[in-house]
Design a binder for these strands. Structure first.
Length: 585
RNA sequence: GGUCCGGUAGUUCAAUCUGGUUAGAGCACCUGCCUGUCACGCAGGAAGUUGCGAGUUCGAGUCUCGUCCGGACCGCCA
């Protein structure tokens, strides 16, 4: 037998028991006579003591031979320590060993994790992921992830949802992200695509009468990674028939409240706040505002339209961001914000100081008294501070000030990292115009139903830029955590959307004919949502990157540093799938 | 595709701005001592292709260019 107990469970009440424990030597301390081990497994750490007064030479010799990360099985008697270790839950007891067996030795580990987190840089941690995951923090992250998926499955199952798996060998579809392709052996030159989401399958499950579906679904998008984006990631994919937007919201809110409680013991306030897309963009410059702090943007285009300041006069949109804080803003610091704005694509970042009730410095000398008065009164500033301006096209002003707002909040620590503020963003535009390609694109995806009052305009191709969709995002602390919509279930409306997106009938019939056809056999109204599991877990674990909540993530450049993937395959394998490699020069 | 940061002992960093003796320190590792430690302690020791390749220079870890790897951001991500 390897073990009778885990390394995290024995307490004072177990005193006198004969036990056997197996695990890793977390830290060995050899005092010359006495030898102490901290023995670790996933459940905790228990101290083991080897006493030469009561043990034979061969046992002491084995104990002396051990090193950190050796895997051992020891047996002995639980006894109360003379002085407890208050840092351990098992700190009141120790095991007086009477035997030890070395299951496996270990080379000296490439890094340590004695204080709960690996002390190495990320590339080394990823190369030795099987060691990194032994750390308390990573073990805890994986446990929280498990608790969340269990809570989600139980919650949704209780609400009548059933988990249904959908294929990972799917069909490449136009628009959206770049697909990962899988060559077909049986059909040379043909490819499957890995799904960017199970979107179409779950809609067809609704047509199939399955009514309430969910899936912890792996999704694949061949785009550049970020700390919150991996080429493969996981969604909690949900779809429901005969559902309104409000019902989807209530379902999601209940699920989040449930899983926050079960995974990390946090009580969420529901229902969540709601903002329209326009409100979010106007006030925060982004479609995923962090509501834990204010710092709202103000629009003064009406005031600056006739400005003597040429930059403002020429700008179709002028907004500003007022910060009631000036001590921390040296000229050098302001310069860093200007560089940041330029990095984001702006020409610059105009600013002025607000001191003693007046605008001073920066661009203040270019502003008329009326403009200054308008800015001061609209800002509502009471203390001295700094005002940043974004001037130009509206999306650029929003992009720059929205990003500066976030950076200022981070640097001035304007929020409590223990607080959770969720909000729904609603009423997104259905279509956005792509200037470069000169065509309309779907803002979310091409299966979203327009708002009922805009349906007529859409069917007639009128005023496309102002058509709003039954389309929503869930945002928490400035992170987009979920996205969803009420879908189109009418084949004629769906055909119209394909047409607006520039697809000829032959194209959409060949690519989506099966879906249109399905809609002609009695498709129920339906809608759903898909929370991103990785980002949600990262938030619960207070991790900055989703790489820290995925067991085996890819690096920035989509490599697995542990397995060294991607890798070459044999010419025979390529031959079988009719692929030849074109050498790059 | 672009901008930026980093790569020095097993590891985390210093030395780089301002080129100049033998590239240092903590932890880890090895040896010895040590019977109540709990990140044990004490003494000693070993450990380096400064990512790689060119260039400038009397001389390069340090400056320049290229390249590879890791990371942040922009583009991209229905």
């Amino acid at each position: 037998m390897y073990r009778t107990n885990s390394c995290g469970e024995l307490r004072k009440s177990d005193e006198g028991k004969n036990v056997t424990l197996s695990g890793w030597i977390h830290k060995y301390r050899n005092l010359g006579g006495l030898v102490f081990f901290d023995l670790r497994d996933r459940y905790g750490i228990t101290q083991i003591i080897f006493d030469p007064n009561s043990l034979g030479e061969n046992i002491m010799e084995t104990a002396n031979r051990c090193r950190n990360e050796y895997v051992v099985t020891i047996s002995g008697i639980v006894r109360v320590k003379p002085e407890p270790n208050k840092n351990l839950s098992t700190g009141e007891i120790e095991i007086a060993a009477d035997n030890i067996f070395i299951e496996n030795a270990s080379k000296t580990p490439p890094f340590n994790f004695l204080d709960g987190k690996s002390d190495a840089k990320e590339d080394l941690r990823l190369q030795y992921r099987y060691i990194d995951l032994r750390s308390t923090k990573m073990t805890q992250n994986l446990l929280i992830r498990h608790k969340v998926t269990m809570a989600v499955r139980n919650y949704l199952s209780d609400k009548g949802f059933i988990e249904i798996e959908t294929p990972t060998f799917s069909k490449s579809t136009p628009e959206g992200a770049r697909d990962y392709l899988v060559p077909s052996r049986l059909y040379p030159g043909m490819f499957y695509a890995l799904p960017q989401s199970p979107q179409i399958y779950k809609q067809l499950l609704m047509v199939a009468g399955q009514d309430r579906y969910f899936q912890i679904a792996r999704c694949y998008r061949d785009e550049d990674s970020r700390k919150d984006r991996q080429p493969e990631f996981t969604q909690i994919d949900i779809e429901q028939s005969f559902a309104t937007q409000d019902e989807i919201f209530a379902l999601t809110e209940g699920m989040f409240a449930d899983l926050f409680g079960k995974a990390v013991g946090v009580e969420l306030k529901i229902p969540f706040e709601r903002l329209t897309y326009k409100e979010a963009m106007d006030d925060y410059g982004v479609d995923k505002p962090d509501l834990r702090y204010g710092l709202k943007l103000k629009n003064i285009t009406d005031i600056t339209r006739n400005s003597n300041f040429q930059v403002f006069k020429d700008a179709p949109c002028v907004k500003y961001l007022a910060v009631e804080e000036i001590e921390n803003f040296s000229r050098k610091r302001i310069g860093e914000y200007e560089d940041y704005a330029k990095h984001l694509g702006a020409k610059g970042l105009a600013f002025t100081k607000f001191i003693g009730g007046k605008l001073e410095g920066g661009i203040s000398k270019f502003l008329s008294d009326d403009e200054a008065a308008g800015i001061i009164s609209s800002s509502g500033m009471k203390k001295d501070g700094l005002i940043f301006f974004g001037a130009g096209k509206e999306d650029m002003a929003n992009k720059v000030l929205g990003a500066v707002r976030i950076r200022i909040a981070e640097e001035l620590k304007l929020y409590d990292s223990d607080e959770y503020r969720f909000c729904w963003i609603t009423d997104f535009p259905l279509f956005t115009y792509n200037d470069e390609e000169g065509r309309w694109e779907a803002m979310h995806h091409m299966f979203t139903m327009p708002r009922p009052e805009h349906l007529d305009n859409m069917l007639n191709g009128r005023d496309l830029g102002n058509i709003l969709g039954q389309l929503y995002d869930l945002v928490g602390n400035g992170v987009e955590l979920a996205s969803g919509s009420i879908r189109i279930h009418d084949p004629e409306i769906q055909e119209k959307v394909f047409t607006i997106l520039g697809m000829p009938k032959e194209e959409y019939e060949s690519k989506f004919g099966f879906m249109l056809n399905a809609f002609r056999y009695g498709a129920p109204p339906h809608g759903g949502i898909a929370p991103g599991l990785d980002r949600l877990i990262a938030m619960l674990c207070k991790e900055d990157s989703i790489r820290d909540v995925i067991a085996f993530p890819k690096s920035k450049n989509q490599n697995c540093l542990m397995m060294d993937t991607p890798s070459q395959v044999s010419p025979e394998q390529l031959e079988e799938v009719s692929i030849s490699i074109v050498k790059e020069k």
